[in-house]
Write a protein that binds this DNA or RNA. Structure first.
Length: 159
DNA sequence: CGCATTTGACCAGCGC
DNA sequence: GCGCTGGTCAAATGCG
């Protein structure tokens, strides 16, 4: 389930060890602050990040104690024209629906075989932007929510 | 009234 | 080829 992690791009700036980091969110405002920052982590770049780099990155900044990255798929084996970036986060949260700065419209719900919990499918409602996200509750730890982002936003976040 | 959500149907890929 | 499974569609419904 885990794969290679590539580097991130934040507001068009490629993230590396010495690039500036986004401001840290106070713990009190965690539930409202982190999604808008998470939305900026969705763009990949060429250079690779190892799992540990990502883990230390998120744990030292926006997600700190509450979130751990569990999967990133680079899809370099695909020879197709479109490369779909995919990032999954496991987040400790009581609610699945959060405003992360983008307008999401739910288009599907599915019961998966492996888990007793439903899986929800969302799509970015901005015209011309086909970013999808999948939200699913962890079957082992129902306190956790697995959010998977697929694709790259072609527009700035609204509001 | 315009938009989001809901929910079963539909479809495509894959394994047997 | 058939059936299972995951992903998407779309009509009906709900809501501000």
């Amino acid at each position: 389930m885990c794969a290679i992690v590539h580097s991130f791009r934040i507001n068009g700036v490629k993230m590396s060890g010495d690039n500036p980091k986004p401001p840290h969110s106070p713990e009190s405002d965690f539930s409202k602050q982190w999604p808008s920052e998470l939305s900026q982590y969705l763009n990949f770049d060429d250079d690779q990040w190892s799992y540990d780099d990502l883990d230390s990155f998120v744990s030292g900044h926006a997600f700190s104690h509450k979130t751990e990255a569990i999967e990133v798929d680079d899809g370099d084996e695909h020879e197709k024209n479109e490369v779909k970036d995919r990032v999954a986060f496991k987040t400790k949260s009581e609610i699945e629906i959060m405003d992360d700065g983008f307008k999401w419209r739910k288009y599907g719900k599915k019961m998966v075989k492996n888990s007793p919990n439903p899986r929800n499918y969302y799509r970015c409602s901005v015209e011309g932007c086909s970013v999808k996200k999948v939200v699913e509750r962890d079957k082992d730890d129902p306190r956790y929510v697995i959010t998977t982002y697929v694709g790259t936003h072609t527009h700035p976040s609204y509001s």
